[in-house]
């Protein structure tokens, strides 16, 4: 079964036709990178996958998006249940103004987990999975704002992992970070692939080629090309894709 299966998706911000007839499938435990110039719709499409665009008034979607076989835009779907299954990491680290521990425990708590020992175990596991444990193990009670940007972003990943999602959406997760933190995040993505299906939006071509199995190139609201990453970067079928990845525009 496909983890994500989008069929004939059209998306509008009021009058603006932001995505045009997108068809895209993602298999389990793969990393898919979305690339394309600014405003091409890649972030919009990412946010469709956990219905984050619902928060913006005046948006409209046609077509269907299936996550693990279930149409997430069908009536009667609980958005909070969906978002439990499809976690998200944002462009800028956005920890809560709480302690490191509470940041990671938050997702569990809002989902009704009260078992103290379970929460503790899960928090430690998640922080370890996000490769942050050695740096924060002595200061779990400290404010999350005391961490560096890269650490905060890994904390946000740990936070997303704590509720055991199936899919992890990453919206340019390393764009606000220094090269060393970026390298750590990329390494982490590679590790996480074993357990999660990952969709990552990136502006960084090298990053896309390093971390992803498949790459989707968006341009002006259309999905121009979607194929194995190696193929996209060595032998693109469209001239537009080629121009973009070779840096001629974008």
């Amino acid at each position: 079964m496909l983890t994500i299966d989008a069929k004939n998706v059209d998306f509008y911000y009021s009058d603006f036709h932001a995505l045009k007839n997108i068809n895209l499938e993602v298999e389990q435990n793969k990393v898919v990178a979305f690339i394309g110039p600014s405003g091409c719709g890649k972030s919009t499409f990412l946010r469709i996958l956990n219905r984050m665009n619902d928060l913006i008034p005046g948006t409209r979607l046609t077509g269907s998006v299936l996550v693990e076989g279930q149409d997430i835009y069908a009536p009667g779907i609980h958005v909070d249940e969906l978002r439990k299954k499809v976690g998200m990491v944002f462009q800028k680290p956005n920890p809560f103004p709480k302690s490191i521990f509470e940041n990671v425990a938050y997702g569990l708590r809002v989902n009704g987990v009260n078992d103290k020992t379970f929460i503790e175990e899960r928090v430690v596991e998640s922080i370890k999975a996000a490769a942050l444990w050695d740096e924060v193990k002595d200061k779990l009670k400290k404010s999350a704002f005391a961490l560096s940007g890269g650490q905060q972003q890994r904390l946000c990943i740990a936070r997303a992992l704590a509720i055991s999602p199936k899919v992890l959406l990453m919206d340019e997760p390393a764009s606000a970070l220094d090269p060393i933190s970026t390298a750590k995040i990329e390494e982490l993505i590679y590790e996480l692939k074993k357990d999660y299906t990952i969709v990552i939006v990136t502006h960084n071509m090298q990053q896309a080629s390093r971390v992803s199995d498949k790459t989707a190139y968006f341009y002006l609201g259309e999905l121009i090309e979607y194929d194995e990453t190696t193929k996209i970067f060595t032998n693109p079928q469209h001239i537009s894709t080629q121009n973009y990845i070779t840096g001629r525009f974008g």
Partner: peptide, 27 residues
Amino acid sequence: VPRATKEASLALGATQWQTIYRVIIPY
């Protein structure tokens, strides 16, 4: 309250009410 903080809460499966009393009011 930054939009990003609210979105972070919602993206973790919190309902609107949970977001209000666990994130927005404390913030």
